[in-house]
Computed example of a mutant assay.
Amino acid sequence: MCRWLAYSGSPVNLEELLYKPANSLVIQSKHSRMGVETTNGDGFGVGWYGTSPEPGVFHSTEPAWHDRNLRELAAQASSRRVFAHIRATTGSAVQQTNCHPFRHGRWLWMHNGLITDFPAVKRELAMAVEPGLYPEIEGSTDSEMFFYLALTFGLEQDPRGAVAAAVGLIEDTGRRHGIEHPIQMTVATTDGDTTWAFRYSSERHSRSLFHNTDIATLRAQYPDNPVLQELADNARLVVSEPLGDLRGAWREVPDATCVVVHGGGEDLFPFSPSVS
């Protein structure tokens, strides 16, 4: 369906994240190892925080491996917090407004998965979006609708609670339309200071999600690894699939879990939908 990564830590060049790892996101756009589809070529997007209050975003409908502008941008730009996403559409159009990450104010959002049979529930879900937010929806994806439902339920004040409420509404709506498994998701969202990532599905068999282990520990285990020597101790990555094969470098996020990354650490919490 899609692949994504969320980085936080000391400023890093985008090229180090998107191109240089052995199983980089650009490699995954053609040769995903753990995704539903091997190829994720229906566009991509990058979001990053710089000197402005709001993050910058760059979207393209080109396959990530084919876009010269992405290569140029990645070679020059650096940031302390980066979201990147490669897209395999589940039915919506290939257009820039459907590329992740989506932005609202300081917030970024990206999603791998789907709202099952989205056309059947789209109108009802759209009616649940707060009227003042609805005009900001630019594209036609279930992922963007999901974002605006989370914003409606208070994402900016309580991300874990808002995502739980949005998922609860999606499941309740889907099941009233006869849909057995209404949602499949790994989601990442950030306000520029903290990242929240979620792994969940109605069928309890969710898409893959991993986070990196402690960099200082890995550096001690692999003193001759040049990549680890360059990373700061506070570097944290949450990814759809590992960026390399270094033993001990990655931990799978358990199903029905929220990962909260702040500063140089992360906390894991159980996640379940809530119904108001």
Rank of each mutant, 00 (worst) to 15 (best):
R175Q: 15
L243C: 10
N98S: 14
D214E: 12
P254R: 06
K30S: 10
A162I: 01
G132K: 07
C99D: 12
V12F: 03
V26A: 07
L151E: 11
L268Y: 05
K122R: 11
G248N: 02
H59I: 00
P270D: 13
E266T: 00
N234P: 03
I27H: 10
A75H: 04
T141V: 08
P242W: 12
S240M: 01
E124L: 14
R247S: 10
H211P: 01
Y134L: 10
F146C: 05
S140D: 06
N13Q: 08
D255N: 15
E130T: 07
E136Q: 04
A120Y: 00
Y19A: 04
A6F: 09
G248P: 03
L268I: 02
S78G: 04
G265H: 14
S60Q: 04
R71T: 10
P182C: 06
P11C: 05
T195Y: 01
V259F: 01
T89K: 06
L268H: 11
R123K: 10
A162N: 10
S79R: 12
F58N: 00
P242Y: 10
L169S: 10
F44N: 07
I183R: 06
T38G: 10
G47I: 03
N69H: 14
D172N: 15
A249C: 08
G154C: 08
Y7E: 14
T97Y: 12
N225C: 04
F58H: 13
G139S: 09
R81K: 11
H59S: 09
S274Q: 08
L133E: 09
A126K: 04
R204W: 04
T195R: 02
I215F: 13
V163T: 01
R80I: 02
I86K: 00
H111G: 15
S10C: 04
C99W: 03
G174T: 08
V36C: 07
T39I: 08
E130S: 13
V36T: 13
H262N: 09
F271G: 11
H104G: 09
I179L: 12
L5P: 04
H66K: 15
L133T: 07
N234A: 05
F269W: 09
H211V: 10
L17P: 02
W4M: 14
F147W: 01
Q229T: 03
S140C: 04
E241P: 00
S143W: 05
N225G: 01
W107K: 14
H177E: 11
P119K: 06
V129Y: 00
